[in-house]
Computed example of a mutant assay.
Amino acid sequence: MSEEIAALVRRLATGDRADRRAARDGLVALGAPIVPHLLPLLREAGTPGCSAAESCLERLGPAAILPLRAVRREGPGQLRAAALRMLATLGGGDALSAADRAAVERLVRIKLLDEEPGDLPADSWIAVPGAEVSEIVRALELHHALPVTTAMGLSAAVHHENSLTRGADDASRATVHRVFITPEFEGWRLLYGADYLRDHWASAVERLSAHCGEAHFYAVDDGNGAQVWWVSEHGRDRRGHRTYGDPEWVGEPMEFERRLMPGEDDEPGDPDEVAEYADGVRDPEEVASWISVQPTAVEVLDRVGHGWLAVTSDDVGPGGFAGALDI
Score class of each variant (00 low, 15 high):
A171W: 09
S172V: 07
R173Q: 15
T175N: 09
V176C: 09
V176P: 04
V176G: 04
R178G: 00
T182I: 13
T182C: 05
P183I: 03
E184Q: 13
G187N: 07
R189G: 07
L190T: 02
Y192K: 00
D195W: 06
D195S: 11
A202W: 13
E206P: 04
R207F: 03
L208D: 00
L208S: 00
S209P: 00
A210V: 09
H211G: 04
C212Y: 03
C212E: 07
E214D: 12
A226K: 01
A226I: 07
Q227A: 14
Q227S: 13
Q227R: 12
W230N: 10
W230H: 13
S232V: 09
E233Q: 13
R236A: 15
R236Q: 15
R238P: 05
R239F: 03
G240L: 04
T243E: 05
P247W: 15
E248R: 15
W249V: 05
R259C: 04
M261L: 10
P262W: 12
G263I: 07
D265I: 10
D265Q: 13
D266L: 10
E267K: 08
D270W: 09
P271V: 06
E273Y: 13
A275V: 11
A275G: 08
Y277S: 05
A278T: 09
G280T: 06
D283M: 03
D283R: 01
E286W: 08
V287A: 00
A288G: 09
I291R: 04
Q294I: 08
P295K: 01
L301F: 04
D302F: 14
D302N: 14
R303C: 13
